[in-house]
Nucleic acid binder design. Structure first.
Lengths: 201, 201
DNA sequence: GGCTATTATGAGCAATAACTTGTGTTCAAC
DNA sequence: GTTGAACACAAGTTATTGCTCATAATAGCC
């Protein structure tokens, strides 16, 4: 383990149950605070206060502020990656709908927090690598789909892949995080329609 | 003028030429520094240093750090809004292509800076209002297009409008700001194709 | 050249926030 | 019950940064 990779590691492995509990409290509090105040204004003291622990305890579990953000993002990405592949589906429209729904589900939880996490990710090369890896796996799935599904007709598979991946991720996030409550169902319908018509003209 | 609206106003109107010059230097330097270090790490001292002026001078022109960001964003939006409506074009594909090209042009200049500007915009209600106003005017144009152009066929004009506006803005930004050099021409082709097929199935 | 408003300077102040450290408390093994 | 390790505490240290203010330089006008 390099000194650099240790920088974001937890300070120690918890041995007692209450330690694990404290760790949980910190993460939950941090999610709360980051989502509400953003990263810069989400101070470690504020997080400790929200978690009802002392600032000293916080630093027994995380060596620095970045490490907390790091763990939040890692957990989110891991959870997102582990989500089931959805129902079996053969029609292109069905597959795309599943993808879109998965994205919506992924963002619905706490879009404010997710926004902060992604914005601050460049602070750590490890986080960037993790995100890149996640995106690559999604891209691989889409590329496979575009290359093999009989209904798909595109001129440039690679560019189309990037376009589809980006569109789903970005547009879903924007709409879910939007302040005014849009009808998600109707929006999903249109997004699926756009992508399907694009791929099967 | 309310006390609140004065908060982001320049300290005074320049009387001498060198004053206007200094103001320019500050803005250019700030754009540089914000784009390279982000907002938090883009300190006012760094900006002054980059502009080759003293920190005191900086604060004679801008009452605080936010005001500098504010002016940068205002100028960018105003410039973007004033851009010509493009060549006259009747075909839907042509119109969409013009829209996409305008968006690309708008982001090409300094995507890093633009990202910082937009991320930090929520710091000021005035900036949010300005952005909202800009987005509404774009949405109005698209809505008009979707409602009147003979080739367009959509079920839900309002949702479709939001989808189109968001897609162009977000996807263009992402791709232009992406680290690996993608072929912009090819990307433009695919994005235009997606939108056109969506609207004219 | 003298005079005044305008512009420029930069050391330093005050506030903030990440993080440390010395001390106190709880748990579990024996 | 004693003991030592794990855990919790929070006042205090250190470094940074936004911003001020007393002073100096400069420009334009008579």
């Amino acid at each position: 383990m390099t000194a650099d990779s240790r920088r974001l590691q937890p300070r120690k492995r918890p041995r007692q149950v209450r330690a694990e509990l404290t760790r949980q409290r910190i993460l939950i509090a941090a999610a709360h605070v980051f989502a509400e105040h953003g990263y810069a204004a989400g101070t470690t003291n504020r997080i400790a206060e929200q978690a009802r622990i002392s600032i000293g305890s916080l630093y027994q579990y995380y060596p620095n502020k970045d490490a907390i953000l790091s763990e939040l993002l890692f957990r989110h990405l891991d959870a997102a990656a582990t989500e089931g592949p959805g129902l079996e589906e053969a029609s292109l429209e069905g597959i795309i709908r599943n993808l879109v729904r998965a994205a919506i589900e992924n963002h619905r939880d706490d879009p404010q927090l997710l926004r902060v996490l992604i914005e601050q990710a460049p602070r750590s090369p490890e986080l960037l690598e993790k995100i890149d890896q996640y995106e690559r796996s999604r891209a691989a799935y889409i590329r496979e789909l575009l290359g093999n599904h009989p209904d798909v007709r595109v001129e440039d598979t690679e560019t189309a892949t990037r376009l589809v991946v980006s569109t789903i991720e970005l547009v879903v996030h924007k709409v879910v995080a939007a302040p005014d409550p849009i009808d998600i169902g109707r929006f999903e319908e249109e997004l699926v329609a756009m992508l399907t018509r694009y791929l099967t003209w």
